[in-house]
């Protein structure tokens, strides 16, 4: 079998110090995105376990797969979950969810949970779109902007480029920073154009690192244009898969001249985490 360079490893994590049976509330959030799906289980207000998996062609199966992965090393059964909120592209099509909430509200809530109440601007760099979100100190959205026209500047675009250059996707960021001189960016409006430009540059004798640098800076440039529309308020943070690509994030921060707040434990689960926080709120509200 040929290597699939775009493929990243799926993973799950479990909190070893927490006993879910002692928890008063046990809820889950599931984020079925265009490229990846995440599930987060919240015991009281702490993360108990989470997973990050690839989305398949079928959103109910992807949701089941993500939740199954998160619960795999635990003894929680699906019936033990008291409330489930679904979010992301496939949110209307998640069989076990009790409610669907848009990913905009969920990302704001999740970033607020991980980054603290000082977070005001969130950039969500997803698999297929970009979102700029402003929120208040409780994680409530105050303004949002969605660029859902095209895959340029998104995770899927980066996967296309990794495949073209035969570079494992996790190494893209570091490699793009390993250049002597920053090359001019490639076209930033379209992945297909960018790809054909990149092929041209390779044939001209550019190194892989140079092409990656050109693509990363094109992506950063596109994102900065989008963010300037809604403006940047501190503190700033980045969620979604591309937030793990240092080549893109460092260029964005350089162009915006701001710092970003690192999100612990994982910036990619912000949507699912936000959904689980919503689930807990809804459960507590329904008990009253």
């Amino acid at each position: 079998m040929t290597t699939e360079y775009f493929r990243w490893t799926e993973y799950a994590w479990k909190n070893p110090d927490k006993d879910w049976q002692k928890a008063d509330t046990l809820v889950a959030g599931i984020d079925v995105g265009s490229v990846s799906s995440q599930a987060v289980v919240l015991a009281d207000d702490e993360i108990y376990c989470y997973s990050n998996a690839r989305t398949g062609s079928n959103s109910p199966d992807s949701a089941k797969n993500a939740l199954g992965m998160a619960l795999k090393d635990t003894d929680i059964k699906q019936e033990n979950l008291q409330f489930v909120v679904g979010t992301g592209y496939g949110r209307v099509n998640i069989p076990m969810s009790n409610k669907a909430i848009t990913e905009i509200a969920c990302h704001a809530r999740g970033a607020n949970y991980m980054g603290g109440p000082t977070i005001r601007t969130i950039l969500d760099m997803g698999g297929q779109d970009l979102k700029g979100i402003h929120c208040d100190e409780r994680g409530k959205v105050t303004q949002f902007l969605m660029n859902d026209k095209c895959a340029a500047g998104t995770g899927r675009g980066m996967e296309v480029m990794a495949e073209l250059l035969q570079v494992p996707i996790v190494d893209v960021g570091q490699m793009s920073l390993d250049v002597e001189e920053e090359p001019p960016p490639v076209s930033s409006t379209c992945v297909i154009f960018a790809k054909s430009e990149a092929i041209g540059l390779l044939r001209k004798g550019w190194t892989k690192n140079m092409v990656l640098a050109a693509y990363c800076s094109a992506m950063a440039h596109r994102v900065v244009g989008l963010l300037e529309r809604i403006g940047i308020e501190k503190d700033f943070t980045i969620t979604g898969g591309i937030s793990k690509n240092i080549g893109v994030t460092s260029r964005i921060l350089k162009e915006l001249k701001v710092d970003s707040v690192p999100l612990k434990p994982d910036p990619q689960i912000a949507g699912a985490l936000g959904a689980s926080v919503f689930a807990r709120d809804l459960l507590l509200k329904s008990r009253k």
């Binding site: 402003h134 409530k140 105050t142 303004q143 969605m146 660029n147 026209k149 095209c150 409006t189 529309r229």
Partner: peptide, 18 residues
């Protein structure tokens, strides 16, 4: 309970459409 500002649309090569 303040509301929010929602921007629907996109930017492409020919301009901003929101």
């Amino acid at each position: 309970l303040p509301g929010y500002i929602a921007n629907y649309g996109y930017t492409d090569g020919s301009g901003d459409y929101y």
